Simulated scan of single mutants.
Amino acid sequence: MITVPIAVLGLLLAAMGFSAWKAHAIEQEFPNHGELLDVGGYSMNSLHLPAGSDADLPPIVFVHGAGGNLRDQETAFRPSLEGRAELLFLDRPGHGYSERGGDQNGFPDGQADAIARLLEARGIDRAIIVGHSFGGAVVASFGLRHPDKTLGLVFLAPATHPWPGGVDWYYELAAQPYIGWLFTRTILVPAGLMRLDQATKSVFDPNPRPSEYLTHGAPALAVRPRNFRNNAIDVFNLNGYAKRIAPEYSRIKAPTVIISGNRDGVVAEEIHSVGLSLDIEGSELVWIDQCGHKPDYVATEVAVAAIEKIAGRDRNLDAVAATLDVRTAKAD
Rank of each mutant, 00 (worst) to 15 (best):
E82C: 09
A191Q: 11
H272V: 03
A7H: 11
L182M: 14
R78A: 13
K149G: 02
N45K: 01
F204Y: 10
E86F: 03
V154N: 06
M1A: 15
V235K: 00
A7L: 15
V61C: 04
D197W: 11
A329Q: 15
N231W: 06
V130D: 02
L49P: 09
I26T: 10
A114N: 01
P108N: 08
G265R: 11
V139T: 14
G96V: 08
G135E: 00
Q73Y: 06
V320P: 11
F142S: 08
T75I: 05
V138N: 00
D289Y: 10
A14C: 13
A116D: 04
G94M: 11
L37C: 00
N262T: 13
G166S: 12
D234E: 14
A329G: 10
I259S: 05
I288L: 05
E248V: 09
P93G: 08
V39N: 05
E99Y: 09
A55W: 10
G41A: 05
R126G: 04
F62H: 07
N239K: 10
P164H: 11
R185M: 13
V274L: 14
W21K: 12
D103N: 14
G131F: 04
N237E: 09
A305P: 09
P219W: 05
E172F: 04
G110C: 08
T75C: 10
L90Q: 03
I60K: 02
L285E: 03
S260A: 15
D168S: 15
A7S: 12
A159W: 01
S273A: 15
A299L: 07
T3H: 03
A305K: 10
D234V: 07
V130I: 14
V154M: 11
I280E: 00
I259Q: 00
V298K: 05
A51T: 12
P5Q: 05
V235D: 03
L119A: 03
E269N: 04
Q104K: 13
I128W: 00
T75K: 13
D332R: 10
L214W: 02
P93R: 03
L37A: 03
D54L: 09
L324W: 03
E82A: 11
A174M: 10
K253D: 13
P210W: 01
N207Q: 02
L285C: 11
A329R: 15
N262V: 08
A140P: 09
G261D: 06
N239G: 10
G41T: 11
L151D: 12
E74T: 12
I280L: 04
D296I: 05
